[in-house]
Design a protein around this nucleic acid. Structure first.
Lengths: 191, 191
DNA sequence: GGATATTGCCTATAGGTTGTAGGTCCCGTA
DNA sequence: TACGGGACCTACAACCTATAGGCAATATCC
């Protein structure tokens, strides 16, 4: 039998593609093996177990997303930067729903890998905030506000929770970002 | 053998308890049957299949949450109402992580049940907005802003994404709500 | 009160998924 | 050419989902 050329990254890329195509719920070791034309036990040399497979897709997704955000933020500041970060997240979630869903579930026993890329995302949020006059001691709170809005809206939209009402979610997006920008611009020191 | 007294609601309540205790991922038909001291096939008279079991827990959770929000909102308006709604969501997620996680995933093929209770949540958000001078044609956008912030923050917190940084997420919560309140108070008609 | 229908939960069974153990064959290297 | 390791295999055990069909307790009717 001919070798297929498996490796951890080949397995994870295939898994990510599968998650996007069939949903995160359909992501199984068996399905990835089928997709690769290989028997399921062959994957266990490259992936510890099913949970590790999902965590790997998480890491792939968060890394890809951070790369895109880095590119999108280049040369921008203030509201432009905020919009670029938020739009990049939203677009990524729409293009890669399975990957994005995987990125959302961080295990308590996060791998060192995930902690690392998580820090990258935090850095990016802080970079965006540099365009706003938020007092240093409040920056964590502002980061969390931005993260909440982006994560919340995108989750609701790709989860279909907004699909039942008019107008389409896309129309609310710039309005939500305008309010977020305003909230950051008018940030005041805490009494 | 003696009858245990199964019914859809008994099964779903047990499932919800199990989801909170062991995580939504550990929620299986078999586990619920074990918990009830019954064989797995016995549950299929009360629940169509595993997916229906999860959807049932979703509905239970969304209904319980809506009930709590109704009680919390009684007699409040404006910022107090906003805080009560948001706090109720956050508290529910912390007390019932499995139920809350189930409530988050709405299938595209949502049951009529889920659509119904989803409307209740939308009504509650609209009720909170009545305390703010948001122009009628913008209310949908404002609802989506509030829903995004609450959903995003709570997801990040219970998902552990905020656990790695200081200060604790609880300190950011009132600051985030203050900014949300401010964003609603200063809402302006769209040009 | 006894016959009958219904219901509640059962066993048996088939098929899919996870994960381990151990084997074979290809390929690079000495 | 012999050897060693890695890539992928088969075999297997355990668990979960789901269907089919059976028995017994309960409700209903005469």
């Amino acid at each position: 039998m001919s070798r297929v050329g498996l490796s951890r990254s080949v397995v994870l890329d295939t898994a990510a593609r599968l998650a996007d195509r069939d949903g995160l719920g359909a992501l199984t070791v068996s399905a990835v093996a089928r997709e690769l034309g290989v028997r399921a036990p062959s994957l266990y040399s490259h992936v510890q177990n099913a949970e590790d497979l999902r965590a790997g897709v998480s890491a792939v997704a968060l890394t890809e997303l951070a790369d895109r955000v880095d590119r999108a933020l280049a040369g921008l500041a203030g509201r432009d930067a905020l919009g670029a970060l938020a739009d990049t997240h939203r677009r990524y979630a729409r293009e890669h729903p399975g990957r994005y869903a995987a990125a959302g579930v961080l295990d308590p026993a996060s791998s060192h890998d995930l902690v690392q890329v998580g820090r990258r995302h935090a850095e990016q949020l802080l970079a965006v905030l540099r365009g706003y006059a938020v007092p240093p001691e409040d920056r964590v709170h502002a980061v969390r506000l931005v993260a909440s809005v982006v994560r919340g809206f995108v989750d609701l939209e790709v989860g279909g929770a907004l699909a039942g009402s008019e107008p389409p979610a896309a129309e609310s997006w710039p309005r939500v970002l305008e309010r977020l920008d305003h909230a950051l611009r008018t940030w005041e020191a805490h009494p």
